[in-house]
């Protein structure tokens, strides 16, 4: 992910998404999938612990990439398997 992560993520709306906004998006997404209230989703739990299997985590990364309007490395969800970790990696 060397060359993509230096760029700031830009949401399709034109606004630059910061770490908190990515965290919010991921919480909303996972909450939507698992029918859980967002505040019950621990941003330091692994995607596996939350209930996503590895293919679902990759699917989520793809949808996140669409929202941000940029590519995300296919292995991002494996390298950074928590909401906070993934969000941090994407803005660093």
């Amino acid at each position: 992910m060397s060359d993509t992560s230096v760029l700031s993520p830009v949401a399709k709306t034109g606004t630059v998404a910061n770490e908190d906004q990515i965290i919010d998006w991921l919480r909303q997404y996972i909450g939507d999938v698992l029918a859980l209230p967002e505040d019950e989703i621990d941003i330091d739990a692994s995607f596996q612990q939350l209930g996503l299997d590895s293919s679902a985590a990759v699917g989520m990364t793809g949808d996140l990439a669409d929202w941000l309007g940029r590519d995300i490395d296919a292995a991002a969800a494996y390298d950074h398997p928590t909401i906070r970790g993934l969000a941090k990696a994407l803005v660093s």
Partner: peptide, 23 residues
């Protein structure tokens, strides 16, 4: 094509005993 499990199988992703088997 690989289906997006978040779209098609969310009921199972939220199903802890089944995810135990799946893993």
């Amino acid at each position: 094509e690989v289906p997006n499990a978040n779209f098609y199988s969310r009921d199972l992703l939220a199903d802890a005993p089944i995810m135990w088997v799946n893993k």
